[in-house]
């Protein structure tokens, strides 16, 4: 049965449509949290250096403002680590016959679905820190602006490659049908 036959019947009751929400999403690799730990740590290290310079030049070591700033820095750092862990668990994707979905967000949640017939191209990106943990990022591009592009981080190269192959083959399928 070709994919064309799927939607022949125009009068489908809306409840019978294939629903995205009932399917199971696949979470990204849990090692992605570590990628975030490392990049957050580097970022906060940079901030710490700036604070240190400021402390040495301006405040002196034993001012209460110094303690307050360092305490605030520590607090924000811990929060960022916690957030990195939680947000990594919230990132998940779902491949269906005709489309790919991606969900993310701890507080502000987003859930985007792109039909394969609207995908322009895909690429796999290996970031510097990603590489240390053996992870890659899959980017799926649509036409026009970037607002509807999907970027799935924290995939193992094997899975990313297979996802890409799958999407590309579907995109080609659609092109041939037209």
């Amino acid at each position: 049965m070709s994919s064309q036959d799927f939607f022949q019947n125009r009068l489908i009751p809306i409840e019978d449509l294939p629903a995205v929400e009932s399917s199971d999403f696949i979470p990204i690799d849990s090692r992605y949290a570590r990628v975030q730990y490392l990049s957050n740590s580097l970022y906060f290290l940079l901030i710490f250096v700036v604070i240190s310079i400021f402390v040495v030049v301006q405040l002196g070591f034993f001012s209460w403002i110094t303690y307050a700033i360092v305490l605030l820095w520590l607090l924000l750092y811990l929060v960022s680590l916690w957030f990195a862990r939680v947000s990594a668990t919230k990132k998940s994707y779902l491949l269906r016959w005709h489309d790919i979905s991606y969900r993310e967000g701890v507080f502000f949640r987003s859930w985007i679905t792109i039909p394969f017939s609207r995908v322009q191209h895909c690429e796999i990106i290996k970031g510097l820190i990603d590489n240390l943990f053996g992870l890659v990022e899959l980017r799926i591009f649509t036409a026009g602006g970037s607002s509807s592009d999907i970027v799935i981080p924290g995939l193992t190269p094997d899975i990313a490659f297979r996802l890409k192959e799958q999407i590309i083959s579907k995109v080609i399928d659609h092109d041939e049908e037209e």
Partner: peptide, 29 residues
């Protein structure tokens, strides 16, 4: 003409079962 459908929820929205739907097209949303 839609090339992507997105559902967005702020904390208030998901606590109250609400959402914002965004239709992405090749020339704006």
């Amino acid at each position: 003409k839609v090339q992507g459908v997105q559902i967005k929820q702020s904390p208030y929205q998901w606590r109250n079962g609400l959402a914002t739907v965004i239709f992405h097209s090749a020339s704006g949303d």
